[in-house]
Amino acid sequence: MAAMTKAPRAQKRTLGQWAKSRDGQKVFVMVAFMIVPLLLLFTFTYLPFAEMVGFSFYNMKYIGARKFVGLRNYARVFSRDDCFGALKLSLYYMGGSIVQLALSLYLATILSFKVKGGNIFKGFMFFPYLINGIAMGFMFKFFYTRGFVFDTVLQWCGFELENLPYWLKDQRINNVSLVATSVWRYFGQNMVLFIGAIMSVDSELYEAAMLDGANRFQQFKYIILPSIKTIIMLNVILSITGSLSAFEPSYVISSGANGTATYFVVMHEIAHTQQKVGLASAMAVVLLCIIFVATILQKLFFKYVFRSAEDEDFNATAKRDKKLARLAARKAGK
């Protein structure tokens, strides 16, 4: 792009001169650096995505002939009960992600102050994130099996087995059980991100705050929270979009049976078992749109909620300046 716009302007120079010039070298370096990642990005992300969008207009299987059906697949996504019904389950996962963020923020704040054995705790809490999702699925299948790990632990705490629910069988709580595994897995990762952000806060601020008599909670509220709002926002957005596309817990632990099939699991079933590739592609595109909308809504929400003191001050001064200017203008007019 740069080359094309620049070339006609510098008509006096020959191509060789241009190549030797600073402008030309800039372009060379840019192209050389960009071409590999862009090529990879294009080949493995945008090209398959474009293909998939193309698929969504066809009635097709993985192999065999395709038939163009226009928007019929999209109409089906909206008319089927199971597609959007599955999105209701995302509410469980969203609820879970809020718990997860609160928990990780709390732990991150505590661990960012001087705590005995802090690094060990960090390590233990981060560890679940390193476990492969499939292995985790098998682990929790046994964990929740009647009379196995979880029930045994609860029995030590004085619960009677008869009073305990069937964690995966009871349709009232099985989604909660699944969400809990996802919280367990990801809160450590969130926590580490939060700790990283909190570390970047200038420690002199705490000292100053302490001198002013601020307690730990006030320090959290007025120093830490405003300083790390960007990373909080990022985590919330990632968690919410993640909960819209939840897949692993439901697929691996309960294989989507017994009312635990999330949108992704339904999509997987349609794409691979029923081999309605077109319909599944349409579902994917619809989900993408939903995630876009959700992300934009969250951005707007945060813009409203996290209007920091500085911003308000800035607005206030701007308004005041305008007012003064108007008054001055009026005076001048007189």
Partner: peptide, 8 residues
């Protein structure tokens, strides 16, 4: 079986 969701 008692709990069919956790059969192995």
């Amino acid at each position: 079986e008692d709990d069919y969701t956790t059969t192995d």
